[in-house]
Nucleic acid binder design. Structure first.
Lengths: 229, 229
DNA sequence: GGTTTTGGTTACGGTTGCGTGACAACCATC
DNA sequence: GATGGTTGTCACGCAACCGTAACCAAAACC
């Protein structure tokens, strides 16, 4: 199925170049020159992924990312930020805003496409309906439910958010701090070890179906949801 | 390992400027003023990267790019096009011809060098997604994983950091002190011989796949990761 | 051939990171 | 205000990991 990619960038030459590369890779480009156009575009058609320039006229890309994350419509749409060299220090702020990846300018279209595919692959199994199936586990976003085959898994709110984040960001390691940012939200302060406890609880709720191995510990780095082996 | 860069450009002042910048960045410049000279130069010595002016006397840079792509000798050599401002509409044609990147005149040598390095990095197994493949070994940064074919290599934290550093800095010798700086971080003090032990451990974890030879000892100097025999 | 230097290998004590169980605080519902 | 469920924190214990020293093997030097 064809993916829709929204590119928010005020420099038209970059927009054109990216749009062409996207079409060539069987993706459908949508374009916006600033934050306002972006919000209009999103309201009309929800894209599968958003490319966001760090510097935009009016509102910064970062601020736009935050707003998009707050809108229920676009809260789950992955975001890749385009940053100029030297702006790399702000990655932390981006992570808090829920940015999925960064591409540093100058980039070649080939590189950009590779990243886009990587991010889309991560949320694999998401057919647009908000239902993701991975490793024998099915999470239903709209219904707020988790299934294994015909069974429904009883799961608490925090565990659910944690699992949902993992399943939309599979095959990638997240530190406790990053998980706190994404699942708890950057504003509240809780101990990092709290993550451990919730990981444990999540594993426990998955145990009856022998699926606790899906959540893996990477010593010294964090945790990873992986459907492979 | 020194890289050879062929610059095809009829304006001699630009040729000289670029050649100077290349030498300063430890790259070897080759020069050609038109398509004919370029083809002769390529036949004599295949460069690692080609800088191609959009406007050339006789044959256009674009047409030359297409021809180079068809030749088996140069089909894999990355190409960066130099275009004057206003020629941007034709980027699409360049991308179709297999051009890797663009630099718009006037450009700073710093920017040009940055682009060259980015493209070269990519041609060495690093596509920017954080996954590097070298010598049969694949290291996945985001997933914090090491693969050999379909297998996953079990690896500890320090070994992983060491291997990651080596794979992002292949074909170059690093002293124990430098490795301590880069892998352990400059702040902590540990004995230099500790590096030896971790090299040993890393070799041991790679042994089951007969890949321990990738890490070579350079007596009196340090260690080197090399994918070339 | 013997000595010195350099790196390989092994074993071990100490540390750290993570899993686990318990518990108090909080919240919603009745 | 009682009950059941959920959440954040802490303390304990284990297993993995790390750094060091000591010893062995191999070059390099004389």
């Amino acid at each position: 199925m064809q993916k829709r990619i929204l590119i928010v960038e005020d420099e038209s030459s970059i927009r054109d170049m990216v749009a062409f590369a996207l079409r060539k890779s069987d993706m459908e480009p949508m374009a916006a020159a600033d934050a306002r156009e972006a919000q209009l575009a999103v309201a009309a058609t929800v894209p599968d992924l958003i490319l966001l320039d760090w510097m935009l006229p009016g509102m910064s890309g970062l601020e736009l990312a935050r707003r998009l994350r707050r809108e229920t419509l676009t809260a789950e749409v992955p975001i890749i930020m385009l940053t100029a060299r030297g702006e790399e220090m702000d990655r932390v702020a981006g992570l808090e805003a829920g940015v999925d990846d960064y591409v540093v300018k100058p980039f070649s279209t080939r590189e950009l496409i590779a990243r886009i595919k990587a991010v889309l692959r991560r949320s694999h199994g998401d057919d647009g309906s908000g239902v993701i199936e991975l490793g024998g586990l099915k999470i239903d976003g709209p219904a707020h439910r988790v299934h294994v085959g015909a069974d429904t898994v009883p799961i608490g709110p925090t565990e659910y958010r944690l699992l949902h984040f993992f399943m939309t960001h599979a095959e990638r390691v997240y530190s406790r701090a990053q998980l706190l940012d994404h699942v708890w939200g950057g504003s509240v302060y809780v101990e990092e070890r709290t993550v451990d406890v919730h990981i444990r609880r999540l594993r426990q709720t998955l145990q009856p179906w022998k699926l606790d191995g899906l959540i893996q510990t990477v010593r010294g780095a964090g945790y990873r949801f992986s459907a492979n082996v």
